[in-house]
């Protein structure tokens, strides 16, 4: 990806992400979240990770945020009567946390070797290579994650049916 394209996308994705947290209307926030996730998937394509890019769109933009919107519309959440105002301690924690994360990222970036990225191995980012890693080296975490998701689904159904 050339620098101008990267910069343009970076500005857009940060603007969209800021809209998610700053916009008063929940529907607009959800839409901005879709735009953010979609633009992130463009970065994945540029990094030769087509599978991750497409999965990002299917799972996050296509399924999860649709459910957010569905719930927002079903409950007919419009703009809140009064926006909760953050006290001084909350703002201080937020600013401090932000600076801390920025410092961590900066420190991590210093360790990255400068320009001249190594050539990608054959088949990098393609589905077969990723699946092979996932089902050999990382099979235990993968299966544990699926069990975790199953437990969450059973829990959600249990909680929902107890009310009814």
């Amino acid at each position: 990806m050339t620098a101008p394209v990267f910069l343009l996308l970076a500005v857009l994705v940060v603007a969209a992400a800021l809209t998610v947290v700053a916009h008063p209307s929940p529907v607009y926030s959800a839409c901005a979240l879709v735009v953010t996730l979609f633009l992130l998937s463009v970065f994945f394509v540029a990094l030769d990770a087509q599978l991750v890019a497409v999965l990002q769109v299917i799972v996050y933009a296509g399924a999860i945020v649709v459910l957010f919107l569905f719930v927002i519309m079903l409950l007919n959440l419009t703009q809140p009567e009064s926006r909760p105002t953050a006290g001084v301690p909350v703002v201080a924690v937020a600013v401090g946390g932000g600076i801390g994360i920025a410092a961590l990222v900066a420190a991590a970036l210093r360790r990255v070797p400068p320009a001249g990225a190594p050539a990608l191995p054959e088949g990098f980012g393609d589905t077969a290579a990723l699946a092979r890693r996932l089902f050999t080296a990382y099979v235990l975490p993968f299966e544990l994650t699926s069990v975790l998701l199953l437990v969450a689904i059973v829990g959600a159904v249990g909680l929902a049916s107890r009310k009814g």
Binding site: V27, G62, M73
Partner: peptide
């Protein structure tokens, strides 16, 4: 030529929902 063409189809199908949801809202 996309080596994840079939997943691209699914991704686009899932994005198609937004037109309906947003129009309705």
């Amino acid at each position: 030529e996309l080596n994840v063409g079939l997943l691209f189809v699914l991704a686009m199908a899932s994005l198609g929902v937004y037109g309906v949801v947003l129009a309705g809202w």
